[in-house]
Amino acid sequence: MNIFRFAGDMTHLISILVLLLKVYATKSCSGISLKTQELYGIVFLARYLDLFTDFISVYNTVMKLVFIGSSLAIVWCMRFHRVVKRSYDRDVDTFRHYFLVGGCFLLALFVHEKFSFREVFWAFSIYLEAVAILPQLILLQRSGNVDNLTGQYVLFLGAYRGFYILNWIYRYFTEDQFSRWISCVSGLVQTALYADFFYYYFISWKNNAKLKLPA
């Protein structure tokens, strides 16, 4: 564990806490893409298949349970909670995310570290996480103004993988046979997808204005 990875995990945790706060405090999921939440649920379920077989540390196991539990809880809330689901706007959350699932799985079948069930699903989860934010970013562009909690959620979610990139650089220089090129390339793509959001978020923060993404 290094400071970059710990900062990344904490930033990721904060993004989840901000999202949970928004949904439970406001009893509303306006501005949140159910499709992105479903993709994240698939990402965590596909990545943490080793949850009960490989014990790394208490921290690792607890964080995996938190990530799986929170993503499924948000999906459940947006689909079935009688108050929250009323604020879900199906008409703006129209990204065809099943193509992302199919495409990433196909890619994982061809590009992986080892052709085994666990490794293919792990590579699939890495590729899927890189593009999972797309429905959410498209929804924000469509819905124009972005409420503060939703904006902070996306900001922290985008920042966490940026910290992981620093972690991979650090590990590359400090560990001899460290090679996570699948994670690194996907992590770079994932963080790059947030670039324009980061730019408009910074502009709105500098001008102390409401965050607006150009359509």
């Binding site: 990875r5 995990d9 490989d54 690792n60 972690n167 046979q177 460290f178």
Partner: peptide, 10 residues
């Protein structure tokens, strides 16, 4: 062959 390194990252 060399076993894949354990995935210790989240």
């Amino acid at each position: 062959g060399q076993t894949a390194p354990v995935k210790d990252e989240l």
